[in-house]
Design a protein around this nucleic acid. Structure first.
Lengths: 139, 139
DNA sequence: ATTAACATGATAAAGCATCTCATTTCACTC
DNA sequence: GAGTGAAATGAGATGCTTTATCATGTTAAT
């Protein structure tokens, strides 16, 4: 329940915050920019301000509810945080984003970090390119 | 020779462009933001405009002479392009950047992309964290 | 030296994100 | 359920990075 998540984050349960979390959880496109969210909610007839969207997303990120990614192209995108870390393939043609997990890469990253006396606190692996099939509709 | 690189890129050989390439090649810190470059050159007594720095870097990037990276923290950083692709560990405490190459990860990325019918045109792997030793001075 | 195309740099402008602050909403108490 | 203080909202201002504009200055080839 979104309400619980918001409370657990030490935040008041408000309409804007519920709407944002709900949208992130129930949209076909898991990865949305702050402006996407703002426009979709406005389109739904909700009253909301862009500043509120940014604020809420930043708070959700701090609470671990959502992740922020900086794909190429200026705007950051947000997604509901899932159990395990995952990486992304981003189609430069259609914008489609595919998430993937790979334990071999994760393991190798840990090894390399250890070799260099580096303590990893976060990481970002993004493959840019394009999908050769035309499944982009079913993304 | 920097002059040749600039010519090969189809650009005129100008003082600002030479200075920028020279700086990128001869600075201890391989990764500089446009503003870093601008300020260093100003500090050296050179006359240069920030717009010129951005323009030159964008042109060099298009020509494959430099790479642009979007580490966390707003500003993009630029580095002289080297033979082979490499990834980065970024120290969140000191800003130190360590480059590394790992064929196991590269290979695995290719496999995963192939599995998903994805043609890779670029990729970005960044590990954020901190170095546990205090070699930051020798970076 | 001349010249035409290109480059420069100061400043304006665009784009993304955050800050400000007056108003509203939430959640708790009685 | 009304009252109250703290927190949240939203409109607009502001900040910061990057790009566009354009009059002036350089380059490189004749």
């Amino acid at each position: 329940m979104e309400e619980q998540d918001i409370k657990r984050a030490g935040l008041k349960v408000t309409q804007p915050r519920l709407k944002i979390l709900d949208l992130l959880g129930n949209t076909r496109e898991r990865h949305l920019s702050a402006e996407d969210i703002y426009k979709i909610l406005l389109g739904n007839g909700d009253e909301i301000g862009l500043a509120t969207v940014y604020r809420a997303l930043t708070q959700f990120e701090a609470a671990g509810l959502v992740n922020r990614h900086h794909f190429e192209g200026g705007q950051a995108v947000f997604e509901l945080a899932s159990e395990e870390h995952h990486d992304h393939m981003v189609c430069m043609r259609t914008g489609r984003v595919l998430e993937f997990c790979d334990e071999i890469i994760e393991q190798r990253q840990r090894e390399l970090a250890h070799q260099h006396n580096f303590r990893i606190t976060g990481h970002s692996l993004i493959l840019y390119g394009e999908f050769l099939d035309n499944n982009d509709e079913k993304a």
